[in-house]
């Protein structure tokens, strides 16, 4: 039984989830190959001669990485929510419209080019991946438009075709590249968290937060669009504007996430479904909750990635798939009968 969403319920639930996220962020920042204690961290930075090692590790390695995971997780989960709603397809994820192959193509071009400059602390790989991702989405959108005003099937097929084509180009480039270059490309593509400057983190966090807020603003229209364009339009929703805005923001936020951490699968697919099954499909609640849950999910996954085989690290994408897959199946089997979510 589900009652209508009220602003009060929304705020209480989002706050509760955010507090949980903050607790998990703190806990995960203390866990790692090098043991540190909260008491020692609270002791402060120490003096120039006598630095506090616990504080150094906490502030310069753990916290930036955990925050990065939170930003990327929130971005991917939000994109997943919106694309599943826009395309009315439960299989949609942030990468479905070609972002992954576009980013991959950008990454390998950057590696082959041998550039070594940085832009706002980002490597050429990240910058090229960002441009590649956005360019591909624009291309898919453009091809999709040729099949109709906003033809969901046309858009999906355009995404599939562009993905396949760019994957072929990536394979071609891989086959002519040196093995060291191939290795760094593949490692990047698997999705990795690294310790970033705070400047990068604040820019990323700003982009993702702004995108999430903008999507929340149009969430009632996204609800109406779940019933198809015709229905939404007759209910007074300006569908083409809503679709274009939602699509552009999603592409941007996903591209930001991809340029921060490479391709991390499953977050954008599993988290929206999990939240939808637990809290219902209303986008006004689904978006903020998915952002918080996605952040939490990726923070935990990344903590696992850097501790399971410590001192070595796993690519976080491996962990999200290994954890996300079974978790998703459990959710699916447990809730699908009760919620009738597929019908």
């Amino acid at each position: 039984m589900r009652q209508l969403l009220t602003p009060k319920k929304l705020i209480v639930r989002t706050l509760a989830a955010t507090i949980l996220l903050l607790i998990i962020v703190l806990m995960c920042s203390l866990i790692g190959a090098e043991k540190i204690s909260l008491r020692a961290v609270l002791g402060g930075a120490g003096t120039a001669e006598q630095v506090n090692p616990d504080y150094e590790i906490f502030m310069h390695f753990r916290v930036p990485r955990v925050i990065l995971a939170a930003i990327v997780g929130a971005a991917l989960a939000c994109s997943g929510v919106v694309l599943q709603g826009l395309l009315r397809n439960p299989l949609a994820d942030p990468y479905i419209l070609g972002i992954s192959s576009g980013a991959g193509l950008g990454a390998i071009v950057a590696v082959l080019s041998g550039f070594t400059w940085t832009l706002w602390g980002r490597s050429p790989i990240a910058v090229f991946a960002f441009v590649g991702a956005l360019g591909t989405v624009w291309l898919v959108w453009f091809i999709g438009r040729l099949t109709g005003r906003f033809h969901v099937t046309g858009l999906l097929l355009a995404g599939v075709v562009v993905n396949a084509f760019f994957s072929a180009v990536i394979m071609f480039l891989t086959s002519i590249a040196k093995s060291q270059q191939v290795h760094s490309t593949i490692f990047w593509l698997m999705g990795n968290m690294t310790e970033e400057d705070f400047l990068v983190l604040w820019i990323g966090a700003g982009c993702v937060l702004a995108g999430t807020l903008a999507l929340f603003y149009i969430s009632p229209q996204l609800n109406a669009l779940s019933f198809g364009e015709e229905d939404a339009r007759s209910m007074g929703v300006n569908t083409s504007k809503t679709q274009m805005v939602a699509f552009a923001i999603t592409a941007f936020v996903t591209a930001v996430a991809v340029s921060l951490s490479g391709l991390i699968g499953f977050v954008g697919l599993v988290v929206p479904h999990g939240v939808r099954l637990a809290a219902g499909p209303d986008h006004r609640q689904l978006l903020p909750l998915s952002a918080v849950v996605g952040a939490t999910f990726l923070v935990v996954a990344d903590t696992l990635a850097r501790t399971i085989v410590a001192p070595a690290q796993l690519p976080v994408g491996v962990v999200t798939a290994l954890v996300g897959g079974p978790f998703f199946l459990v959710l699916l089997v447990r809730y699908s009968k009760r919620v009738n979510w597929l019908r």
Binding site: R2, Q3, L4, Q84, G85, R88, N89, P90, P220, N223, A224, S226, F227, G228, M235, R276, G280, P281, D282, V339, N340, W341, L342, R343
Partner: peptide, 13 residues
């Protein structure tokens, strides 16, 4: 719709 909106949510739309 693909995702299970309830009756009251649907009417409220």
């Amino acid at each position: 719709p693909v995702f299970g909106f309830s009756v009251i949510e649907t009417v409220m739309m």
